[in-house]
Design a protein around this nucleic acid. Structure first.
Lengths: 167, 167
DNA sequence: TTTTTATTTCAATAATTACTGAAAGTTCGA
DNA sequence: TCGAACTTTCAGTAATTATTGAAATAAAAA
């Protein structure tokens, strides 16, 4: 397989995977492109490579920067802005875990906690409701706590130990 | 908060969370409804409660059954089919992890493995490509292995230990 | 076999989400 | 302060995805 072919395959795979997880195609593909690019790229470069419009590129670069996985870089003497992705895979997963926790998991936990505390009137409906929403709350809360510890690299040795043990 | 209000809040929250993760609203809401229902529900019951069409209900119940988190139940003497969700939170997360791994992570790993093995021609482009796709491959592979071990409950004590340690 | 009851399928349509391109905005050098 | 180079915004449109509802199918009862 040639580099060009492999590159296209990577970008397109990353794009569909993104879609599957609720991230739009352009955003995932821009990230893929920057991920494998040795040097920062300009907006023009990205538009050209992926055949997408200026507006689309601009919007999705902004989102990637909001996620903290793409940075602006300025070349001295150049007015144009260049973009580079976070290249460290640990840092990438850390950022993604962090953002997903903040945007999605935490708000859900809040709702689950609130609604699982309704007054128990003794009916089977209510009993089941409390039982099932509490179970979900505990699951989400534990998962989120673990995620954040790992993300904050507070217990790095545990992770390493676990990986060794579990393999 | 009254049960009815809490129920609606739960169903709607679960629906939006689903959407955010690439699962359609109806599917997530049907699951939410069954999750908190003490008894199995018929298609009519679901249609009525969620105000969705028969076709939509049928299609999404099928999907939930494909995911292995909803089951058909027959009441004796009744022609109608009833549906119940898996009620155990461990089993639920196990099923979801299993299906996501099978449908999404594994195919991605396969592609990453394949493309990260292109011949190194020494150019910076190629070097970066191999470096970055391999890193992603290793990350995905390790994560997937861990997920499956946990899912298969092969190392249950490790999980328990980890949770204790990490909290 | 025919009728009744229930479920599935799928073409048509609605709703949502993504993308374009040009106008407006910004920044910087002359 | 003006104008060139570049970026952002956003109304309009395209593409995708979800939903409906009715016809086809299936399965049990009469």
């Amino acid at each position: 397989m040639e580099l060009q072919e492999a590159k296209e395959k990577f970008i397109s795979t990353w794009g569909s995977l993104g879609t599957l997880w609720g991230i739009n195609k352009a955003m995932a593909q821009i990230h893929a492109l920057l991920w494998i690019s040795p040097d920062p790229l300009s907006m023009e470069d990205i538009m050209e490579e992926l055949h997408i419009s200026r507006g689309n590129t601009s919007t999705n670069l902004r989102q990637l920067m909001d996620w903290g996985i793409v940075y602006k870089e300025n070349k001295i003497g150049e007015r144009k802005e260049y973009f580079a992705s976070e290249k460290d895979v640990q840092e990438l997963s850390k950022q993604i875990a962090k953002e997903r926790s903040r945007r999605e998991i935490e708000p859900t936990i809040k709702v689950l906690k609130e609604i699982s505390r309704i007054k128990d009137d003794g009916s089977p409906q209510t009993k089941e409701f409390i039982q099932q929403t509490s179970a979900l709350y505990e699951l989400a809360d534990t998962a989120n706590t673990m995620l954040n510890k790992v993300v904050n690299q507070e217990h790095n040795w545990i992770t390493k130990t676990l990986i060794k043990l579990i393999k």
